[in-house]
Amino acid sequence: MKARHLIPVLAIAVGAILPLAPASANSGGAEPLVHQDWSFDGPFGTYDKASLQRGLKIYREVCAGCHSLKRVYFRNLEGIGYNEEQIKAIASQYTVQDGPNDEGEMFDRPAKPSDYIPSPFPNDNAAKSANNGALPPDLSLITKAREDGANYVFSLLTGFEAAPHGVEMSETQHWNKYFPGHKISMPPPLSPGQVSYADDGSPETLEQYAKDISHFLTWAADPYMEERKRTGVKVILFLLVFAGIMLGLKKKTWADLH
């Protein structure tokens, strides 16, 4: 390569790399997130069905007390490995309001697979008033709605500690080293042994719980990830071959130019 080509190439390279430089954005002094190895990482990553099912268990037994998961239908649970009968059984444990019936009354009935997972509070104001004025966010999209979502949820759930000396905290605040601003209204939700993993014998530790629920919420936000990545492999391979053919054809076409 000649020197006169070098300068533009260099300029373009600098231009391309510059935006990738780590942003030193200061998000309220929060620590860098803990990074876990997730089975869904990478171009061939898949979800771990057992972890997803444990995650659902944690959601139902712990998170669902305050957080909704309002964009997930019961029928979607097929994606975490349940069959139709199991989904019906899970749904029937919930009550949803339906109606109005022929008399114009709203009535309660057991949930069906075609229902959304019911939310713990009828609306945001009710949720706020039950939680000291803080709104527990809906979790359906939480891992997409936070930068590096799965690691964020994991870090947050394992990041509670005693507030440093001299920091003033109100009654309803808790110190979390990964939360922007550190003062979070959510009390530490998980403790070891809290949720039974008797079914599959996984360790009942805080880390395992945090990992499973982060895994589950990643699925909830991105249920088509596996299909997306599978399709991607096919598309990229197809285009690689296509590009090869076109390159050959282009060279062949240009070869007869004198």
Partner: peptide, 16 residues
């Protein structure tokens, strides 16, 4: 040819 190479990079973003 150039288009297909470009679309390939584009698809890497779409799918990954």
């Amino acid at each position: 040819f150039g288009l297909i190479v470009f679309v390939m990079i584009y698809c890497m973003f779409i799918f990954y």
